[in-house]
Design a protein around this nucleic acid. Structure first.
Length: 323
DNA sequence: CATCAGGGCCCTG
DNA sequence: CAGGGCCCTGAT
């Protein structure tokens, strides 16, 4: 499916805004629905039934940020559609986030201060819908990165749509309804294993209208947590990511899975990751040092580490990232 | 060749 | 609340 440019829109984030570190997260495993080069981000999006290609370019500075959004589609898009899209992207990319109080509280912190200085204007970002993130969370569970990558590729190749726009060829997600009739057996054929059951049941919940993402956004974190935990195959680790990334809670940090425990142990206590600090001790440290901003603080350390890894291998980390 | 653990979660006892 | 089982895959 080849798309043509249908609209150009300027998006103005709150300052400071750091383009690359916000719109590209080197710790996210790669999926064939997006591409990045410094100053330019390409993604696909399913929005109000349309399959879209998006190109986002950096046209400003950290202190006077401006993004140029190119919307590629298969038909003319009216102004209402484009306005709604811009509002949704503002939400998903955290363009309206006020980082001021976070920086005021923590930019002199001995460990976090230098990290903030390196990444001033960076924010968490989640390009996809709740449903899409749930699928990715399922694909992450109990396997290595290589396998997560292959599961997502197989799902995109079978159920996604390849979109060509602006010289890119990227897959677009399917809608829950398009997967409604797919059986567990068929999914197992894509080597997703026992996760097939979770995909079927979560897709069913969306098809039946049991999950309403816009409505959930307006609820409290505890209500959101309860709803998400009610989904088959979604437990505390996945919920932690969902509440931070999809629902943008800056203080969410209730779950520390084993491999993160190892990384935090090295990062904050400089101990051998194979002899990690107990989770309760890590939690006590985060509560004491970063209260109110635990998730956001950890995000800064995490991205700092993975950007560093792009330029020079971090030996102890390579062992933990099992490809 | 066998065995095991992995960026969890469900279910059982 | 602890612990076994689960799809697959790569490491040993």
């Amino acid at each position: 499916m080849t798309l043509a440019l249908q609209a150009m829109v300027d998006l103005i984030p709150t300052a400071p805004f750091l383009f690359d570190a916000t719109l590209h997260k080197p710790d996210h495993f790669p999926t064939p629905d997006n591409a990045w080069q410094p100053g330019v981000r390409w993604l696909t999006m399913r929005w109000r039934g349309e399959r879209l290609g998006l190109k986002i370019e950096d046209r400003g500075t950290v202190d006077e940020p401006r993004l140029a959004l190119g919307v590629y589609g298969s038909r003319l898009l009216d102004a209402g559609f484009v306005d709604g899209l811009a509002a949704e992207l503002t939400y998903r990319y955290n363009l309206d986030l006020d980082l001021g109080t976070f920086y005021a509280r923590l930019d002199t912190h001995p460990a976090l201060g230098p990290v903030i200085a390196r990444w001033r204007g960076m924010r968490p970002y989640n390009p996809g819908s709740l449903y899409e993130y749930l699928i990715i969370a399922i694909a992450l569970q109990n396997c290595t990165v290589r396998r997560s990558v292959s599961m997502m590729r197989a799902l995109f190749e079978r159920y996604g749509t390849l979109l060509r726009f602006d010289g890119q060829a990227l897959y677009c997600f399917w809608e829950p309804a398009e997967l409604a009739e797919v059986s567990e057996e068929e999914l197992r054929g894509l080597k997703v294993g026992y996760r097939a059951k979770s995909i079927v049941r979560i897709t069913g919940a969306f098809v039946r209208g049991e999950i309403d993402e816009p409505a959930l956004r307006g609820q409290t974190r505890d209500e959101q947590r309860r709803t998400l935990l009610g989904l088959y195959g979604i437990g505390p680790a996945s919920v932690g990511y969902l509440l931070s990334d999809v629902f943008r809670h800056r203080d969410e940090l209730e779950s520390i899975p084993p491999w993160e425990q190892k990384i935090y142990s090295k990062l904050f206590f400089d101990v051998d990751p194979e002899q990690p600090v107990p989770v309760e001790e890590l939690m006590a440290y985060f509560n004491r040092e970063f209260a109110g901003y635990r998730g956001l603080a950890v995000h800064y350390f995490w991205e700092d580490l993975f950007w560093r890894r792009l330029h020079e291998p971090v030996e102890w980390l390579e062992k933990l990232i099992r490809l």
